[in-house]
Write a protein that binds this DNA or RNA. Structure first.
Length: 382
RNA sequence: GCGGUUGUAGUUUAAUGGUAGAACAACGGACUGUGGCUCCGUAGACGAGAGUUCGAUUCUCUCCUUCCGCU
């Protein structure tokens, strides 16, 4: 109902779907920029719209601290607050357990965070988190999950999965109750998040437990965090075997161009990542030939654009030499240009992917891209 | 001109009669559900000359240099 598969690739598990939300429909697969505090760093909402970002994801917990969820509800919800005409997602804040600056501890009832700016403590429960996410009013909410670190022991990851499932059940129940009186086409969707690190058996258990709860979509969490690509792809494959075909699947955090193509060919529909913007701020840029470091000396006198085959306004107007100068001086305007370019690159890459799936040429497109795009991930695989 | 003072990497500096250490800057790399200020790696210096000494960046002398004062 909320997700329809329109095209299926014959050679791979790639598919093109249509996700329906209260703010409208969006074609999958898509990549959404991370707008943690209701803005993609260094970019305005106009920038997101002009690069054709059709969705963005913000952080419900951080927004509930500043400005607070009431301010956003008062504005008419997240998309109106940030004047965005696309689909909005909110992440629960569970991922912040990964950040030692704000994470304190957790138990079966919830998780303790502290505000690093003033030391204020917060206790986030699934109940509170669902209320916050509904108040903020994104089109898609994410369950509060427990985020184990990659290096954690197998028993710690098993424990994280147990807690994640427990909270997922609570989230679903509360989310349903809170939206009982809301008509179907105005409802916020809720996605469950699976954990399990890179252990097949725990990952499978997590997926099975969440499928039983029946969410609008499923996310794979705790991946794209430093494990090998083989391990990551394997986790996608075993998860997809257990996930219902007719539900959208979201690989959280993945943002490397090659990685996206590999994930799409394994049946992933949704992506988000801070990788393109964080890389951009430090001068690592995506081009059709691979990644480049704009701060390299060899670009000092280079008058050519970042990528001749890119049609973004940055590549139309600015030289590598100029962008190199701005980035090396840590100028905000430079970070805006590089962030814009990297996001534009991923968004238009996925546009091409959707086009290829429609035409039945996805696999050809992927193989061609892999040949021309130089990245250490590609080298590592061979 | 005289008296004092100073001289170590591009910059700010540490230590030492026995292979000069750091921080920024530079150069190269990493960043994957973001509280921008991160991490890893590489390269780079004893002002010049003479003397004492097995050995001098260190001690002595001369020159040059920095800054201060006096004429």
């Amino acid at each position: 109902m909320t997700f329809k598969i329109l095209y299926k690739d014959k050679k791979t598990n790639a598919r093109l779907g249509l996700l329906t939300t209260k703010s409208g429909d969006i074609e999958t697969p898509f990549f959404m920029p991370v707008a943690t505090k209701a803005t993609a760093k260094y970019l305005s909402t106009d920038d997101l719209i002009s690069m054709k970002a059709k969705a963005s994801i913000s952080n419900a917990f951080l927004l509930s601290v500043r400005p607070n969820s009431e301010t956003i509800r008062n504005a008419g919800g997240l998309s109106k607050f940030m004047s965005f005409n696309g689909i909005t997602f909110t992440d629960s804040g569970g991922f912040q357990m990964y950040s030692p600056h704000i994470y304190l501890k957790s138990n079966d009832s919830g998780v303790f965070f502290k505000d690093p700016l003033n030391g204020e403590k917060f206790f986030i429960t699934p109940e509170k988190n669902m209320k916050i996410q509904l108040e903020i009013g994104a089109d898609v909410a994410m369950c509060l999950d427990t985020m184990p670190l990659l290096e954690h022991s197998k028993s710690a990851i098993t424990e994280a999965v147990r807690k994640t499932t427990l909270w997922a059940k609570k989230c679903k129940e509360i989310h349903n109750n809170l939206q009982k009186k809301i008509s179907k086409n105005k409802r916020q969707l809720l996605f469950g998040i699976t954990q399990g690190g890179i252990y097949s058996d725990i990952r499978e258990l997590s997926v099975k437990q969440l499928v039983e709860i029946n969410f609008d979509g499923y996310a794979l969490g705790g991946l794209a965090l430093g494990e090998s690509k083989e391990e990551e792809y394997k986790m996608i494959e075993i998860s997809k075997l257990l996930l219902p075909e007719e539900k959208p699947v979201y690989l959280m955090g993945a943002g490397n161009p090659l990685e996206l193509l590999e994930a799409i060919s394994r049946g992933i529909d949704i992506f988000d990542s801070r990788f393109p913007t964080k890389s951009a701020r430090r001068g690592t840029l995506f081009t059709s030939k691979g990644r480049i470091s704009i701060s390299n000396q060899k670009y000092k006198f280079d008058k050519s654009p970042i990528d001749f085959s890119c049609s973004c306004f940055v590549c139309k107007n600015y030289s590598k030499s100029y962008i190199r100068h701005l980035v090396s001086q840590e100028e905000g305007s430079g970070m805006r240009l590089t962030s814009y370019h990297n996001l534009f690159f991923l968004i238009s890459l996925l546009e091409k992917v959707r086009d290829a799936i429609k035409k039945g040429s996805f696999n050809h497109f992927k193989e061609k891209f892999k040949k021309t795009y130089k990245d250490y991930i590609n080298i590592e695989e061979k």
